[in-house]
Design a protein around this nucleic acid. Structure first.
Length: 304
RNA sequence: GGCGUCUUGGCCGAGUGGCUAGGCAGAGGUCUGCAAAACCUUCUACAGCGGUUCGAAUCCGCUAGACGCCU
């Protein structure tokens, strides 16, 4: 029988987790999380990770499986997720993936090219180069090392620039020489479903959820990781704002309103990203589970 | 009641006669290892009316509103 991955996408706070649990129960499936922040075990509250109870109701993977101190990225996730999906498929042809990190979702579904490991020292040096010599300097260098990628990436974006350069420098080959995702094939079929709602409603839910997080102890959680604030894993909505409060730069009230604002913006970007996948079937957030399951069953039948 | 100061886009804020500040918020978007990140694009406003002038957010008058001082 064919193997399936049911991918659930949508903006933060719309109810993806809840739906994933119901579907997991229905199909007796395991859940793969594609949320780049729920990976971290130290920050469950601010990342709206599933609760212990929810985690018990279905077998989850990639929730709290690493530490904020670990270095993790799409590449690692892509590799790990593929291995796990294959394993999970042994016991059940239907596996569910849920999460709001668009790049991570796409990596699993569409693949992502493999790049050699790059010495982190190179990135540090490039960052220094950026801050001392300016972005034009990096642009000129990339144009020299890989004119192809220079023309296709957003050269105003320092992160993109540095990534392309670190690959060029770390491998002595142009970054673009590693790109050939077209060949990528998974051994499972993907059914992508999305949850949507009116912008206003999404925003209301986000605002309420942030207030709830504060009540549930987000401050203590943020305080407990405060000393690690410079880690990339903590460049995360809900923490970076509270760090400013701890510094005395912001009032708590302002920090909270910034968390809400930044979460709203995040949700907006998620919608933009997920709308790119034309194969995604969109459902209103309050569609009954039965209706969604009915759609999925049809898809599973059609495809098998 | 008198005198004075002020009134710029959703908000903040520069601009003293011709050359559409800027920031924030919002909206739209980008995306192959930092992705809850990073980056890009975008919103022609000068309280109202009249006057001066080739030309007014900028000068003059009146009206309205806000603030301050005086009686």
């Amino acid at each position: 029988m064919d193997k399936y991955l049911i991918s659930i996408v949508g903006p933060t706070g719309i109810g993806k987790t809840n739906l994933s649990l119901k579907l997991a129960t229905n199909y007796n499936s395991e859940i793969i999380s594609s949320d780049s922040r729920q990976f971290y075990k130290e920050i469950p509250i601010g990342t709206a990770a599933p609760t212990l109870l929810e985690l018990k109701s279905a077998k989850h993977h990639f929730i709290h499986h690493i530490s904020i101190k670990d270095n993790y990225n799409v590449g690692s996730f892509h590799k790990d997720a593929n291995i796990q999906i294959e394993k999970s498929h042994y016991s059940n042809p239907v596996v569910i993936m849920v999460g709001g990190s668009g790049l991570y979702v796409d990596a699993v579904i569409n693949g992502i090219d493999e790049f050699p490991k790059i010495d982190p020292e190179i990135r540090s040096l490039l960052k220094i180069q950026l801050s001392t010599l300016g972005i034009e300097n990096l642009q000129i260098e990339l144009k020299k090392l890989d004119p192809n990628i220079y023309n296709s990436i957003d050269i105003k974006n320092p992160q993109r620039l540095i990534r392309a350069l670190e690959v060029c420098k770390g491998t002595n080959k142009p970054y673009s020489s590693f790109l050939n995702r077209e060949k990528y094939k998974t051994n499972f079929k993907t059914i992508s479903i999305g949850l949507k709602a009116e912008r206003r409603l999404i925003y209301d839910r986000i605002n309420n959820r942030v207030d709830k997080m504060i009540k549930n102890g987000l401050l203590d959680e943020a305080r407990s990781v405060f000393k690690y604030r410079d880690l990339n894993s903590l460049n995360t909505v809900g923490y970076k704002e509270l760090f400013n409060y701890f510094d005395g730069k912001w009032t708590l009230e302002y920090a909270v309103s910034e968390i809400k604002k930044n979460t709203r913006r995040y949700a907006k970007r998620q919608v933009t990203w997920f709308n790119k996948n034309k194969k995604t079937k969109w459902f209103e957030h309050d569609t009954t589970t039965a209706e969604i399951i009915s759609y999925l069953n049809d898809e599973l039948l059609i495809n098998s």
